[in-house]
Simulated scan of single mutants.
Amino acid sequence: MSALGSLPPVAKRATPSAGTPATVALSAAGVDWTAHPYTHDPAAESFGTEAATALGVAPERVLKTLVADVDGALVVAVVPVSGTLDLKALASAVGGKRAAMADPALAERTTGYVVGGISPLGQRKRLRTVVDASALEHDTVLVSGGRRGLDVELSPADLVRLTGATTAPVGRP
């Protein structure tokens, strides 16, 4: 299913017994997905841009997972790495008034992932999720596979379905 061209995909796992919580969730759901590992550079300034560059993928197709606090509740926003999260649009998308980025330590404890490896899939506590509407323009998108240096490629429809997300224009170029 890989749409990355010459990049050799790593076959999806046959059983959900190994991998990150994200890859386990994907395998258990029975959807088509492809793992794309890359060598993470600890000095990289942007995890998402690093992934897009390392994998040779347009940054509009690589999505970053951000955790925000909307009126006291944590919410996940999934937006292209080529842009930024519009906090006002996120608050509006979930019926809130005010949004701010969540404390990174709280995001890590709640999702079970480390910053730079937070996946929208397989989180410890399922949070309300909003996927930027631009993701639907692509046949496949890439999101964190649950650790730094691993992205997974899947259809945006499967991403939305598996996370229980709504879609809204929450990203800014």
Rank of each mutant, 00 (worst) to 15 (best):
I118G: 07
S17T: 14
V130C: 07
P156R: 15
T163F: 02
V115L: 05
S46Q: 11
A68H: 01
D103P: 05
G19Y: 01
T111H: 08
A165V: 11
D139R: 15
D86P: 03
M101Y: 13
M101Q: 09
A93T: 01
T39A: 15
P21L: 06
L154F: 07
A89H: 11
R109Q: 13
P173S: 14
V143F: 11
R61A: 10
F47Y: 12
K88N: 06
L26S: 02
L4F: 08
V78G: 02
L142W: 04
T15W: 13
A135P: 15
T65E: 03
R13S: 06
E45C: 05
D151L: 00
T53C: 12
G30K: 07
L127S: 01
A18Y: 08
V10H: 01
G112I: 09
T34A: 10
S92E: 04
R98T: 09
P9V: 06
L87A: 13
S6I: 06
V24R: 15
L7V: 14
L63P: 08
T34W: 14
P16T: 03
D139W: 14
T163V: 00
D69G: 06
T166P: 01
L127G: 00
K97F: 10
P9I: 06
G116A: 03
P16H: 02
G112Q: 08
T39P: 00
T53V: 15
A43M: 10
T15R: 15
D71Q: 12
A29K: 03
T49Q: 14
V130A: 07
L87G: 04
Q123C: 10
A93W: 00
A168Y: 07
A14V: 13
T20C: 09
A25R: 14
R128E: 15
A54L: 04
A11G: 12
A35H: 04
S17D: 13
K88G: 03
D41E: 05
G149L: 06
A73P: 01
D132M: 10
D41W: 04
R126N: 05
T20W: 04
K12I: 01
L85A: 01
R109D: 02
